[in-house]
Amino acid sequence: MKRARLIIKEVQVTKQGEIKNFQIKLPKNVQRVIAIDTDVRIDSRIDGFATGGIRPAPKLEEKPMFDSIPIGSDGARSAPFLSWTLQKNPVAGKLKLKSMERTYIFYEEWLHFILFNGGIPDMSMGMFARSPISLNKNRIPKKVDVPVSTTIVNGIYEDTLGKFLQQDITYTIKVFVWVETEEENDGVVFDFQDNKITTEKKETEQHG
């Protein structure tokens, strides 16, 4: 098995509906792309999308970003008092990756912001502060298998969050490209690497 290395590319988005084209340069001893991971870091303030309850209660003079609860003529919210609040992870945009020696797009993903405790209902019914500790799971690199003979991966990213909210939101996306190089393995094997050799060895040992 060959050694895996990580290439990181950062792209900053500043305008609503912006389309960014970029190239990820791979090392010259690269053999194949084996996994892709992504991350989004917010540089300007954004509120989470809250649905399904009265918490967090936005002030009436502030227009909430996404309000599914109609406000009555007297200004009161027609929602039950004790209801859960669910914070969703907003979609930031779409990422596509394409190898130079192929005509098709080999990787495509909608990128999300990960908010603290996003997707977890507010069990405290708004009476206690929510835990600042995130219950989100760590991201896992998505396995791909793209043999490459050139050292460039073309990427295109299109913002949808700013377009949806109709405002310029500044954020940085990170694309992590795991590649397998010609170098010999130094003993570290990642989950997403093809462990065919290891299993073959184990089988031989067992039979032997």
Binding site: Q16, G17, E18, I19, K20, N21, K96, I105, I156
Partner: peptide
């Protein structure tokens, strides 16, 4: 694979 628009200012 991308866009072509000479008036679109949000593309690099």
């Amino acid at each position: 694979f991308g866009m072509f628009d000479l008036s679109f200012d949000r593309i690099d």
